[in-house]
């Protein structure tokens, strides 16, 4: 029985007013994130623990709570937008870009590409939830994916954000992000990559 099943059962049998979000039920959309006993997880893919009588469910940390388990994700997406989270192609190219599947670049990016924007990492980060000016692990992971892409022309802007007041210096090596990512991504590694990159530039 998944946590999402539990919530639906509560809604059916105990409290029709309980508020929570879900959509795909298969860990693809990133909508049903919540905290189970303090740990940020996707409700649809997390089994309810069998070894105790009570569990504690909290909404995601660091985002304004609208009702029950529903939060306003706008601040998360605002931080995401700060890193220019889309490919900006070079001007004046005449040939298509060639990136072979076994290249270093491809291997580095592939590992971090599948972010579903669930904010579990943001919620597990001891800092992102605090003063609200850390862009957060998801945004920095995204930044790395694009900075490492040889087709991209906006690396400087992204590195400026990573080097800025809300960037990599706000990361305190808690590793909450990598420990909790439901897709197995490693934002901590992305942040280390960005730290190295800014030393080189």
């Amino acid at each position: 029985m998944m946590v999402l099943d539990l919530l639906l059962a509560i809604q059916r049998e105990h409290d029709a007013c309980i508020g929570f979000r879900f959509s795909c039920r298969v860990a693809m959309c990133g909508t049903c994130t919540l905290r189970l006993d303090g740990r940020s997880v996707l409700a649809c893919q997390t089994p309810v623990p069998q070894d105790r009588d009570t569990v504690r469910l909290d909404p995601v940390a660091g985002l304004p709570v609208l009702r029950d388990l529903v939060v306003d994700t706008a601040p998360f997406w605002r931080e995401w937008a700060k890193v220019t989270p889309y490919l900006v192609p070079h001007d004046g190219l005449t040939e298509p870009a060639v990136v072979t599947p076994d290249s270093d670049e491809r291997r580095l990016i592939d590992a971090s590409l599948d972010c579903i924007g669930c904010a579990a990492c943001y919620s597990s980060c001891a800092v992102a939830a605090g003063s609200r000016d850390f862009v957060g692990p998801a945004a920095l992971n995204r930044a790395m994916v694009l900075v490492a892409d040889s087709r991209d022309a906006a690396a400087e802007q992204r590195l400026a954000v990573a080097d800025g007041a809300g960037g990599v210096d706000r990361c305190h090596y808690v590793y909450g992000c990598s420990a909790v990512c439901p897709k197995g991504l490693d934002p901590a590694a992305a942040i280390r990559y960005l730290r190295k990159s800014r030393l080189k530039s």
Binding site: G62, G130, G176
Partner: peptide
């Protein structure tokens, strides 16, 4: 206190079990 309140951490009993 800020850990408990805002960052998803600071739950001692749970942490020890984990």
């Amino acid at each position: 206190v800020s850990a408990r309140r805002i960052d998803g951490g600071g739950f001692v009993g749970v942490a020890l079990r984990r």
